[in-house]
């Protein structure tokens, strides 16, 4: 009884928006695009495969936003990580390449984090700067060249492989969402992230190491972007400076639509997953409808506007 009551209470405006919106758009495409093959399992699987990197990045961003910080640099981190992994794998074993990719992400995230947590620079400005910085580094790393990834094990694990006939990108998504959700909802770290974003002073006087939390979430963001870079490199069997370039808006939109507050203290990993799938579904549906890239951008921009409006209405209540 009480648990169903509290469940009802938890289904507040923001959270229901994503479920209702997700379902509505799904049904809309299912009805209008039935003949174009929207509902085929192949197309639906494709949506999940295409959104896997965005979902992974969205998980990191939920943590950052919940702690009252933001990361704008993850798109550039994707490219740097993918390129690092690809370049290293040309002359070293696969494991070293993976570590290089994840390590590059973690390192850039930690750099953002140190500047934000210990020098108290605003994360918006720090990551705006590092976004540009690492976009440039990604370009100069290989002189704009694309680096092929020929290691079959790597492309299997991070791209086209399957385990028990489930595509690896689907598994990565499930794995990351499950772990992310548990850490976010059910660990002290998750609780401290929320407290820090909600009221940093209250967190501080309650003994929470606020700077460490800020460093933690931004490092996590970078690491997740590094993983996303590996997934891109695995799926495309190549790394290029353009990877992740267009993900910034998609991921932010996915996270906000999914019920994570822009100003901290509130968020949802499951919501971010649905938000990310929603963005993928939109892309997919709009392409099937025959809209060109510019129309897609317009529709996506409008969706973000609506999402932000709902998000801010709720938090100013």
């Amino acid at each position: 009884m009480t648990s169903s009551l509290s469940l009802l209470r938890r289904l507040d405006l923001q959270r229901s928006v994503i479920y209702v919106g997700f379902l509505a758009i799904f049904l809309f495409f299912a009805a209008t695009l039935y003949d174009d093959g929207f509902l085929t399992s192949r197309n639906l699987t494709n949506i999940v495969l295409q959104t896997a990197p965005a979902t992974i990045m969205a998980i990191g961003l939920v943590f950052a936003l919940s702690a009252g910080e933001i990361d704008l640099s993850f798109g550039s981190v994707v490219a740097v990580s993918a390129l690092s992994a690809a370049v290293v794998m040309q002359s070293f074993p696969m494991v070293v390449g993976i570590l290089a990719g994840l390590g590059a992400g973690a390192l850039i995230g930690a750099m953002n984090g140190i500047l934000v947590a210990y020098l108290r620079l605003p994360s918006f400005l720090v990551t705006l700067a590092t976004m540009g910085l690492f976009a440039g580094i990604a370009r100069s790393m290989t002189d704009l060249r694309s680096i092929p990834v020929l290691n079959d094990t790597f492309t299997g694990i991070f791209g086209s492989g399957k385990l028990f006939s489930i595509p690896s990108l689907v598994l990565w998504t499930i794995f990351a969402v499950a772990i992310g959700h548990i850490v976010y909802r059910s660990t002290r770290f998750g609780a401290h992230v929320l407290a820090t974003g909600d009221n940093a002073r209250a967190a501080q006087v309650s003994g929470i190491k606020v700077p460490r939390i800020r460093l933690g979430v931004l490092t996590l963001c970078g690491t997740m972007a590094g993983l996303a870079g590996l997934l891109y490199a695995g799926r495309l069997q190549a790394a290029k400076y353009t990877l992740g370039e267009s993900d910034l808006m998609t991921v932010i939109a996915a996270v906000i639509v999914g019920g994570t507050a822009l100003n901290g203290g509130k968020g949802s990993i499951i919501g971010a997953l649905l938000g990310s799938l929603l963005m993928g579904m939109l892309n997919n549906g709009l392409i099937l409808m025959g809209l060109d890239v510019s129309d897609q951008m317009i529709v996506r921009g409008l969706i973000i506007l609506i999402a932000v409006a709902v998000s801010l209405r709720d938090t100013s209540r």
Binding site: I182, R185, S186, T187, R188, G190, A191, H192, L194, A195, D198, N199, R201, A202, A203, V205, S206, G207, I208, A261, G265, K266
Partner: peptide, 27 residues
């Protein structure tokens, strides 16, 4: 008051001293 406004009362009561349970140390 030093309360985290968007969190439930019980999380504020245990702010920074959250109770965890074995075996995984989850809240």
């Amino acid at each position: 008051l030093a309360l985290a406004d968007q969190q439930p009362v019980y999380m504020n009561m245990f702010l920074g001293r959250e109770l965890i349970k074995p075996p995984f140390g989850l809240l």
